[in-house]
Design a protein around this nucleic acid. Structure first.
Lengths: 229, 229
DNA sequence: GGTTGTTTGTCATAATAATGTCATGCCGCA
DNA sequence: TGCGGCATGACATTATTATGACAAACAACC
């Protein structure tokens, strides 16, 4: 998923402020100061969210919103409308025109981010939400629970993520570095050896019914999660 | 409860307009342009509301309404008839045929939504109004009361909503952001951490008989309301 | 309109859990 | 036996959550 956010706003200062805040939080702002540019940028950059000022020259915000929501290709794109305080009518119109949320000027960066994230969360299709069962081990991402033969297992967040990764990537060996990438995420630096410690913690956590044997050490290579012994 | 709305309307433009408005408000439109299609879609999609144009080719609206209201399986399905202005006779006939409400062309999206929601509310008295019991906790949405093993519990409105949400969404983990979305509602902005405070208040409120243990903290993920320990 | 009592959101601080690192001991393999 | 790689327990540091206090917003009531 791209992190592009199309900002449709005629006032440069506000545009830059929005862009700055978004940029600071790993979003990629794309700017449009009027209706034609907005249409153009929409097609060329394929953003995953639109921040739309209600009053833009060359065609009102509603017009643009309707265009977006009327096109099969873009109708799923979430739109957050920016309105001035007290324009209740605008809000209603905006929401009817297809905006997913609105934000009232003036607003804090925090609020902006909260709304952007909330709207994107709602728009994002649920994935990786399936329950997984392997050899009596049962991991439920939705409930955030792990059970072994029905008995509840307790573990820390990192161990949970690690187990989740393993259970969705059976039989294959992963080096410590790979595990750090996939489970911890890129651009976090921790020692390779730290993986060992978490492997141990995970083993301990799932050892109630002997499932720790599924986590296999491959000397010189890394670790493997396997159904076979 | 599904949010499917069967739109029986021969004119494509009106059909699309209706669908568009409904879609923007979390309904799921299903379309039928004539009598046979309507019968077909009714069976295959099981909508929870029917928007029915009076004049559809291949059998009048009344015929379809009578069919719906005559079948034991569908007689509870609410029907809103769409009529042209001034066709008073039609309205009478429509209501006699079993329509629950009617709306006169032209109408605003607002009016449409108001009627749709009103009818659905009437048709689904049980929706969100059912008493809920979990492990001796008893929440009555109608009386706005909560009791634990018969004893009345006191809490603020927000805690009540929060508990209601939890009791209708057992076992699953919700992040603070999600809880804000679902319980506080969209377009209100409050800090994530505020959820913590309300969780604590709710815990305190239901702690009389130890029910606070049902609200479980899932570190790094959010909170969960669970029957299990 | 003023008063009283609730409710609410936020903050500062305390409490707690998780994390990463290290030192040490173990094991397999040449 | 010696070596490199791995396992394990302990521990300081960091993150995350719980809690109490407070002021603003709100409602109900004279």
């Amino acid at each position: 998923m791209s992190n592009k956010v199309l900002i449709v706003e005629d006032e440069a200062s506000i545009r830059e402020m929005l862009g700055f805040v978004l940029e600071q939080n790993d979003f990629e702002p794309v700017y449009a100061e009027d209706y034609p540019t907005a249409v153009d940028k929409l097609a060329s950059t394929q953003p995953s969210l639109i921040l739309l000022d209600w009053m833009i020259p060359g065609g009102s915000g509603v017009k643009f919103a309707k265009l977006v929501k009327g096109d099969e290709n873009t109708k799923e794109l979430p739109i957050i409308m920016i309105t001035a305080r007290g324009e209740e009518d605008d809000k209603v119109q905006g929401l009817e025109a297809g905006a997913d949320d609105y934000i009232t000027k003036p607003f804090s960066p925090k609020e902006l981010l909260a709304r952007v994230k909330a709207v994107m969360r709602r728009a994002a299709p649920a994935s990786g939400e399936d329950e997984i069962r392997v050899n009596g081990l049962h991991l439920d991402p939705v409930c955030h629970r792990v059970t072994a033969n029905g008995e509840h297992l307790d573990m820390g967040p990192t161990e949970f993520k690690l187990l989740h990764f393993f259970m969705t990537h059976l039989e294959r060996v992963y080096s410590r570095e790979q595990l750090l990438d996939y489970v911890w995420g890129t651009n976090v630096y921790v020692e390779d050896r730290t993986v060992d410690v978490h492997i141990r913690r995970l083993r301990k956590a799932i050892s109630l019914h002997g499932h720790e044997k599924m986590i296999q050490t491959v000397r010189g290579a890394g670790y493997r999660f396997s159904k076979k012994s």
